[in-house]
Design a protein around this nucleic acid. Structure first.
Lengths: 249, 249
DNA sequence: AGCGTAATGTGTTATTTTTACACTCTGCGA
DNA sequence: TCGCAGAGTGTAAAAATAACACATTACGCT
């Protein structure tokens, strides 16, 4: 850190100046309001959804907004993101990961505000939205425009992040109920990655990864032959480290 | 955003309250000092290096520190990172990418400071370190301990990030001189990923990716048969998009 | 000049992984 | 009981990866 002149103390022993008063040092730094914005993905009706509210900012009237809040005093960013999630959805044992910090000077009309984007994946069946303020709802990820602030950009970055992450980590299982059919799983991958996959090869792939537990149960309420229901085996999942598989780009 | 009570204005038209004064809203947010810390990797002597200085904080006397600075007023984080890079190395046309924001409440002894970590990769041959303040030097990435603040954790995260990113993107070329031999390239990959690779397969792989230009020139100053020198073809590189290659974890 | 050394450069085969592809089975609902 | 819609299954071809050995070239030393 480059020190403010006022806090440099000479230190003859070292032949250079050392900063003694770290509090004074930090006092000399400019401060910035920090928010977290949560991109909360869900999967419903074979579509990837994201949880949005109506902006409560007059100048963004009618536009959609991510769920966010400023970081409280002495609050760690992860905690702030979990708090937003809890306050809005009632859940706190969900997948959550920091994606990126956005800092464009004019991204917030009220002045300079940095925001840290978090991605969260949760199962829309596991809970109802308790609080329905600001028209909170699951919005189809396709065809979203006209968002408040730079939230469209944040959403795009998080969606791209999700697509990439899905290929290296079975994140998607967080979006499904505890028991799921292979068809549901494939639908999920197809929807998020926006591709078509061969059904047989998809099954082979997942079975070979060997972390699906056959529950012995079957789907219900489907107007055709029910599929088997599987469960994710968190234990076995750990054993699947990969070697250098070559560079991919 | 959850609004502070004082800035909520009733809006009967909508049946809910809208925030009119966004500046007042932002004023109500707590503010946090923000720094950037640059993890500047280089490659020299077949070893991955990182640019470090001695901490100028008295309580961290003797410990190593990443290159960082607070974000100036109205400065975007990317710009701050480039500035740090420029001030310390004289270069600004280098690879730089944001990695993650660190926000643990006690990560800075002087109070709450968030830091945004950036990774940078540059060729140690391309420039000398102009300013040699604070014992700035290239430090071998292995065997670093006793760093100031949480800089060891930041370094570890950035190193892991680099290893992962290397597999999906030819980042490594930023660490090499403009013209390089395949042996140098392989040494780079072996050093960063900490693995041994088959020389023939490595060549085959890179040639098949088809973005190495044979300069026709040869190594110099090697005590054995000189290897050919190649150059990276930025144009051809764009054409190598990949399809769904399956999930890897 | 010649020889040892050390790293360059190259091709083939076996193995594994990925892709492509079609028919039977089962349960539901009409 | 018949039609429908999706479940369930295997094989063969193609592609990618892994393993592996020997001739070549320049340097440096004697």
């Amino acid at each position: 850190m480059i020190a403010n002149e006022t806090v440099i103390q000479p230190n003859s022993e070292q032949g250079r100046t050392l900063i003694k008063d770290v509090h004074q040092l930090v006092e000399s730094y400019p401060r910035v309001p920090i928010t977290v914005d949560c991109v909360i993905f869900g999967f419903d009706n074979n579509e990837l959804k994201v949880l949005l509210i109506r902006s409560d900012i007059e100048m963004y009237k009618g536009k959609w907004s991510l769920l966010g809040d400023f970081a409280h005093d002495d609050e760690e960013l992860d905690d702030a993101a979990y708090r937003v999630l809890r306050e809005r959805t009632g859940m706190d044992d969900v997948y959550l990961e920091q994606v990126r910090t956005f800092s464009k000077p004019n991204r917030h009309p009220g002045g300079r505000v940095f925001t840290v984007a978090y991605c969260s994946l949760l199962n829309t069946e596991h809970h109802d939205l308790k609080i329905l303020d600001n028209e909170i709802h699951w919005h189809s990820v396709k065809n979203i425009c006209d968002m408040a602030f730079d939230h469209k950009e944040i959403l795009d970055v998080c969606y791209a992040w999700l697509q990439k992450r899905m290929l290296e980590h079975p994140l998607g299982l967080n979006l499904l109920p505890e028991k799921f059919s292979l068809r549901e799983l494939q639908n999920l991958y197809e929807a998020i990655l926006d591709i078509k996959l061969d059904r047989r090869n998809f099954r082979k792939k997942f079975f070979s990864m060997d972390f699906l537990i056959d529950t012995g149960e079957y789907e219900d309420d489907v107007p055709h032959r029910p599929g088997r229901l599987y469960r994710f085996d968190y234990n076995k999942y750990q054993h699947n480290k990969r070697r250098w598989t070559g560079i991919e780009f």
